[in-house]
């Protein structure tokens, strides 16, 4: 493949972002957005301390975000480490909620390809519906694009039926041009989704980065007809941020992408803020955070 270097003007990107953030989303359009944001959420726990109990709680929260309101939808997926997939799958078996698993020596990706492939196969075998892989940022930054491409392509094969989300870890890529190039590379290599971050590196998802990735998805669709999904992850904590991302998706990619099949939020604390806003829209009053379960 030929990798184009697309020029990107960071100041112009920020201006576009500011304009998107100036949209005022109120009333029924806000409720619609909150509903969608919840349905697009990948409820995530990726800690070394994740015990069976923690995963169990997370899965319950995913199925029943807020019992006070019967019509609250459940989230799209829970995202866990490979050795917690089986348990999560077991708990969620009667629901429509997917189990996503990070793999490929997450979060650094600093291991051999063989080990990464095994990591993926293990997660898939345990029942993961979606695999969130990381690219080799070191190889990418040193210009070894072929290696990055081949890794993604082989991991895609190892995923079999599972959907592949490719994490670019944009906080380590250094420029928006690199973000764009890595997005193009990942999509060419077979990504179903491209994803900003592991959540372990700061900055995680930022609006300029997501704008550039959405533009890459739009251009890839224009070029190949293929529809790729997008997942910003890390640092998205408020409903307001989530709604601004949705505005961005609508205005850059169009309404076709306003579905959990093509857009996800990777977040752990966003859910409760969405629920709180939801209740506020319904009742006109803010509830104390004490009324919402932590997990």
């Amino acid at each position: 493949m030929i990798l184009d270097r697309i020029p990107i003007d960071a100041i112009g990107v920020q201006e576009r972002v500011d304009r998107i953030c100036s949209r005022s989303i109120k009333k029924e359009s806000k409720l619609q957005a909150l509903d969608l944001a919840l349905r697009m959420m990948d409820l995530t726990t990726l800690e070394g301390s994740d015990s069976a109990g923690k995963v169990r709680q997370l899965c319950n929260k995913a199925m029943h975000p807020y019992t006070e309101l019967p019509n609250i939808p459940s989230v799209a997926a829970v995202c866990v480490y490979p050795n917690r997939v089986k348990l999560a799958k077991e708990i969620l078996k009667d629901s429509a909620i997917n189990v996503a698993s990070v793999a490929t020596a997450f979060p650094s990706g600093m291991s051999s390809l063989e080990i990464k492939l095994d990591d993926v196969r293990y997660a898939v075998q345990e029942g993961a519906d979606e695999i969130d892989m990381v690219i080799s940022r070191g190889a990418f930054l040193s210009g070894d694009y072929a290696l990055v491409y081949d890794e993604i392509a082989q991991i895609k094969e190892a995923c079999a039926h599972a959907h592949l989300k490719v994490i670019l870890e944009t906080g380590e890529l250094g420029s928006l041009e690199h973000v764009r190039m890595a997005s193009d590379l990942a999509m060419e290599a077979g990504a179903d989704f491209i994803k900003t971050s592991t959540g372990k590196i700061q900055p995680a998802a930022t609006m300029p980065v997501v704008l550039v990735m959405l533009q890459a998805i739009r251009d890839f669709h224009h070029k190949t007809g293929k529809t790729i999904g997008m997942k910003p992850a890390g640092g998205i904590r408020t409903s307001k941020q989530a709604i601004q991302y949705l505005v961005m998706v609508k205005e850059i990619l169009g309404e076709k992408w306003l579905t959990p099949d093509l857009f996800r939020f990777g977040a752990s604390s966003l859910a409760n803020d969405v629920l709180m806003q939801w209740v506020k829209e319904k009742t006109g009053r803010y509830q104390s955070l004490n009324y919402f379960s932590n997990d």
Binding site: R23, S24, I25, K26, K27, E28, S29, K30, Q32, A33, L36, R39, P73, S95, A96, L246, K250, E255, K256, W257, L258, T259, P260, D261, L262
Partner: peptide, 16 residues
């Protein structure tokens, strides 16, 4: 189970 929930939505900004 999830058919209805994965359809893209039509989303218009309310008057602000």
């Amino acid at each position: 189970k999830s058919d209805s929930s994965t359809m893209p939505i039509h989303w218009e900004y309310a008057h602000a």
